[in-house]
Simulated scan of single mutants.
Amino acid sequence: MDDNQIQPPPSFVVLFTTPGGHRLTEPMAHVRERYELCEDMAQMLTEQAGTLQFKTGGSERDVLSAIAQALSGDEAPLDAGETGWVLSRLAELLGWEPLPPAPDR
C-alpha cells in the first residue's frame, strides 16, 4: 500500500503512460518523485521568468523560449516531456500563454 498523499495531475502522469493510457511505464513512486521535481522547478522559475522579462523587455514567448533553451542542455535534469510540462506549468503560474509544443515532443 502506498501512503503517499501526492497525486500528480493527469497532464503529468501522461508522460509516464503507455500509448492509449492504459498502463504506467514507471512505478508510481518514480512518477511522484519526478512530479515533485518538475513542480518545484516551475515554482522556482516564476520569479526568474518575471525578472528576465523585466530586464530584457522581451515578450512572454521570448522568456519561455529562453528558459526552454536553458532546460534543454546536455546536463539538463529533465527529459523533453518533463521540460514541456514545466514550461506549460510555468506559463500557467504566470498567467501567460504557453509555448506551442515542439515537434519532437
Rank of each mutant, 00 (worst) to 15 (best):
D40K: 12
P19D: 01
P27A: 11
L52N: 07
R34F: 12
G20A: 08
V31H: 09
P27N: 13
L15D: 02
T56P: 04
T17L: 08
L45F: 08
T46Y: 06
G57K: 00
A29V: 11
T56E: 09
G58I: 04
Q53A: 08
F54Y: 14
A49H: 00
K55W: 11
V31N: 00
S59K: 03
A29N: 08
E26Q: 07
G20Q: 01
T18A: 06
V14P: 02
M44A: 13
P19R: 13
G20L: 02
T18R: 07
T17E: 13
L24A: 01
L37S: 15
V63S: 15
A42W: 11
T25D: 03
V63N: 12
A42P: 04
M28K: 09
R32I: 14
Q48D: 10
M41I: 13
V31D: 03
H22M: 12
L37I: 09
G21E: 02
E26S: 09
E36V: 15
M28P: 10
T46I: 03
G21S: 04
E47A: 12
M41G: 07
E36A: 15
L37F: 06
D62I: 11
R61C: 01
G57M: 01
R32W: 06
M28I: 12
D40E: 12
L24C: 08
V31T: 12
G20C: 00
T18Y: 03
Q48F: 04
R32F: 01
K55C: 02
D40A: 14
V63C: 06
L24M: 02
A29G: 11
Q43S: 06
A29E: 13
V63I: 15
T18E: 04
L45Q: 12
K55M: 14
G58T: 03
E36G: 13
T46H: 03
E26T: 08
R61T: 15
C38R: 07
A49F: 06
P19Y: 06
P19E: 08
G20N: 04
V14Y: 09
E33A: 12
D62A: 14
Y35N: 03
T51M: 01
L15N: 05
V63E: 10
G21F: 02
A42L: 05
Q53C: 14
V14C: 09
K55Q: 08
M41L: 15
E36F: 07
A29C: 05
G58V: 04
H22W: 04
P27W: 06
M44W: 07
L15A: 05
H30G: 12
F16V: 03
R23G: 04
E60D: 14
T25Q: 09
T51Q: 12
P19S: 02
F16G: 09
Q53R: 15
M41Y: 14
M44F: 15
R32A: 03
T17V: 00
P27Q: 02
Q43V: 13
H22P: 07
T18W: 04
G57P: 02
E60C: 05
L52A: 11
G57V: 01
G57Y: 07
D40P: 11
G20R: 01
E26H: 07
L24I: 02
F16D: 03
F54T: 13
G57N: 06
C38L: 12
A49I: 01
G58W: 07
F54R: 15
D62V: 03
